[in-house]
Design a protein around this nucleic acid. Structure first.
Lengths: 238, 238
DNA sequence: GCAAAAGTGTTTATATTACACCCATGT
DNA sequence: ACATGGGTGTAATATAAACACTTTTGC
C-alpha cells in the first residue's frame, strides 16, 4: 500500500489480449493460447507482458490497440472489443491507465501472418504463444487482465456468436462444437448442440462437405448479416 | 473529420452516469432519471454534461469517480461499476480519455443527501435531474454515453440483481416488479414475477408487511451474501 | 464388416407464459 | 359489501437435457 504521490499525470497505454485456439500436439483437444511479448527494459525487465504500447495523441483507442499489436507481434485482428480500463495506482511505478482490448484470431490466420513476416525477414522478436490456462507470472497486473478476458470470453460465448472469430469461413458443426467446448471447458452433446445452433438461424448450410477419416460432415457458414458480438449502441461508433 | 494532430498527450477524465428511479407526479409510473451538471466554461459552455472531472495522479479510477460525483452534485453512491472508456480523438477540443462509471441510487437516498446539503448550506449549484428517456443535447459525446449506460442497465437487469440498487433494504414484490418494469419498459405478470424471483433464492421474506390502501404486502430483503452484480474476477479488486 | 463420426428421433425434465381464481384489507 | 392489489393454482407451451438409434464413410 505504498501511496505513491507522484505529481506526474497519468499516461494512457493500450494493450490487447488476443486469443487463438491451437492444438499443441495433434489429436489433443485445442487449447486457448495467447501471444506475449518479453519485456526488454524496466519495469519487469525479462518478464512476459501483453502486447501494447502508448496511445498517440491523435490516435483512436482502437487504432492504437491495432497498431501496438502489429508493432509488437506482427499480428493484426479484424475485430477488437474493449475489455476494461485498468488504472490502479500501483500497477506500475509510473501512473499508467491501460485501456485493454481483446480479440480472437483464427489459428490459420496466425500461421499465415507469421509466415508472411518470416518470408519478409521482419519476424517479430521476443514473442511467444502461451497456454492461457497456465501462464507464468506476467509483468504488471497482466495475469489479472488475462483472467478477466477469459471470464468475458466464457460468458460471452453463451449469448453471442463470437466462436465465429476462431473459425474459418466454412466449418463443420463438430469444429464449431469443439470451439465451444474449448472455451467452456466441458463437453457438449453433439445432437443437442446441432439442434440449438441450427435453430438459432445464424448458420447457413453449404452444399460442400469436409471429407475426413469417416462420414463426411456438411460445411456451414455464418450469416454475414448477423453481428459478431452484441455491443449495444457502441457498435455504430466505428 | 478535423484530424487534430495535437502534440499534447491525452488527459484522463472520469465521469459517472448515476441513475435513480423517481416519479414526477404521483400515481404515474416511475421514470429513470439522472443528474446533470451545467457547464460554466468552454467547451460546450452552458450545455448539460455528466458529472465528472480530472483524474488525480495518485487516485484510483473509482475513487476519482466518487470524488468528482460528490464535488459536482453532492451525491455519493455506494456501488460504482465501470461502464466504458471513451477516447475518440474529436470528442473534445483537447485529447481526453474519459473512464465512465455508472451507478444506481435510491430515490430516498438522493432526497436525504440533498436535504443534508441544503441544511448545511452547501447545496450544489447547476445540478438538475433529467428524465433519461428525453434528454436535451448534452456536452461532448455524453448523449451517446447515456444511451450506452441505459443499454447496459437494461441488459444487466435480466441476469443480475441490480434492481436492488434502486430499492430500500426492505421492499414489497410489487415495488421490485415496478423497478423491473421501469427499466425494461414493459409490464410483467405479477404472479409469474413473484415465482421467478422467489425461486431464485436471492430474496428473504421478512415477517413485516407494508400496509397500504389494500391488502398488506409482505416485505422482502435481499440476501446480503449475493453480489449486487456479477463482474467476474474484477470483483476482488476493491 | 467394423470403427467412428454424422445426423435423426424420442422421451423426460424444467422454464416460461397466460390467465383463472381466492385472500385480506381500507373504505 | 366491494374494490383493489396480494397471493395461489393450473394448464399450455417452449426450451433444455439425456440418450438410443440409424446413416455414411475409410479402412
Amino acid at each position: 500500500m505504498t501511496q505513491s504521490t507522484s505529481p506526474e499525470p497519468a499516461r494512457v497505454a493500450v494493450s490487447t489480449v488476443i486469443f487463438s485456439l491451437r492444438r499443441t500436439d495433434d489429436s489433443a483437444p485445442a487449447e486457448l493460447m495467447l501471444p506475449l511479448v518479453r519485456r526488454t527494459r524496466d519495469p519487469f525487465d525479462g518478464l512476459w507482458a501483453l502486447p501494447g504500447g502508448w496511445l498517440d495523441p491523435a490516435e483512436e483507442l482502437e487504432d492504437a490497440a491495432s497498431r501496438t499489436l502489429a508493432e509488437t507481434t506482427g499480428l493484426s485482428a479484424s475485430y477488437l472489443e474493449q475489455l476494461y480500463a485498468f488504472g490502479g495506482v500501483d500497477r506500475s511505478p509510473a501512473r499508467v491507465v491501460s485501456i485493454v482490448y481483446w480479440a480472437l484470431l483464427r489459428a490459420d490466420e496466425v500461421d499465415a501472418q507469421v509466415a508472411a513476416h518470416a518470408a519478409q525477414g521482419d519476424a517479430p522478436e521476443n514473442v511467444e504463444w502461451f497456454d492461457a490456462a497456465s501462464l507464468p507470472r506476467l509483468a504488471f497486473d497482466h495475469n489479472e487482465i488475462v483472467e478477466y478476458a477469459l471470464w468475458r470470453l466464457r460468458s460471452k460465448v453463451g449469448y453471442s456468436r463470437i466462436a465465429h472469430g476462431l473459425l474459418p469461413p466454412e466449418f463443420t458443426l463438430a469444429e464449431l462444437r469443439e470451439v465451444y467446448e474449448s472455451i467452456l471447458g466441458r463437453r457438449l452433446d453433439p445432437a443437442n448442440f446441432r439442434r440449438q445452433v441450427e435453430g438459432s438461424g445464424t448458420l447457413f448450410p453449404t452444399d460442400r462437405f469436409r471429407t475426413g477419416s469417416h462420414r463426411p460432415a456438411r460445411l456451414y457458414r455464418y450469416d454475414p448479416d448477423v453481428e459478431l458480438a452484441e455491443r449495444g449502441p457502441l457498435t455504430a461508433r466505428h
